[in-house]
Simulated scan of single mutants.
Amino acid sequence: MTVAPFARSARRYSLGEELFMAHQEQLVRFIASHLPAASGVIDAEDLAQETWLRIMTLGSPRLAPAPVTGDQPLAWGLPVLLCNAARDVVHAHLTKLVEWMEREEAAEPSATAA
């Protein structure tokens, strides 16, 4: 899977932008690893965007970039809160997918019915 890196410019970035640039690639990989093989990079990128929206909407000072001492807990190379938000987004996505598949199966006529 290839995720395009974000180019930096000379301007100052907000905390949210810094977090995005520091963790986007790893976040997409984390999400993709939790999706079925049939899901593509686009699904993972969409869910990563949904994760960022959730985090930025809720806001959390604990998502601040880790200092050089490395005292911020990480999971999969991501801040734990970001990892947990991504896990919640993936769970909701997969739940909707399973519900949709069950409705589709229920709507199909039975192969044994004549």
Rank of each mutant, 00 (worst) to 15 (best):
A4L: 10
M21Y: 03
M1N: 10
E50H: 09
T112R: 03
V28Y: 04
D71K: 09
E45L: 07
P5R: 05
T95Q: 13
N84D: 15
V80G: 05
T112D: 13
W76Y: 15
L35R: 02
P73W: 12
M1K: 11
L35I: 05
A7F: 05
A44F: 04
G59T: 00
A75V: 15
A107W: 06
H93P: 00
E102Y: 06
F6E: 11
L35T: 02
W100G: 14
T95S: 10
Q49R: 13
L58H: 12
Q26H: 08
W100C: 08
D43N: 13
S14T: 14
E105A: 15
A107L: 10
P67A: 12
A106W: 05
S60A: 05
G40C: 09
R87L: 06
V89Y: 01
W100Q: 15
N84W: 07
A86H: 04
R11F: 02
H34N: 08
D46E: 09
R11W: 05
M21T: 03
A114N: 12
A38Y: 11
L63Y: 07
A64G: 05
R54K: 11
V98A: 12
D88I: 01
A64S: 13
A44P: 01
A10M: 12
L94Q: 14
T95W: 06
E104W: 04
L27T: 01
V41E: 14
S60R: 02
G59R: 00
T57W: 02
A75F: 09
M101I: 10
Q72L: 13
Q24M: 09
V89R: 02
A7S: 06
L94D: 08
A114K: 08
H91W: 08
A75Y: 07
G40P: 08
R103D: 12
L19Q: 08
E102V: 05
P61N: 13
A107G: 14
L78N: 01
P79W: 00
E17R: 03
P65T: 02
A113C: 08
V90T: 03
S60V: 00
P67K: 09
I55N: 00
L78W: 01
M21D: 02
H23M: 00
A113W: 12
M101F: 15
S33D: 10
G70E: 04
E25K: 12
E17M: 02
A48H: 02
L47A: 03
S14P: 03
I31C: 01
R103S: 10
L35F: 11
R87G: 08
A4E: 10
L94A: 07
A86W: 06
P73H: 10
R87N: 10
I55K: 00
T95K: 12
W76A: 15
A86G: 14
H93Y: 13
R62A: 07
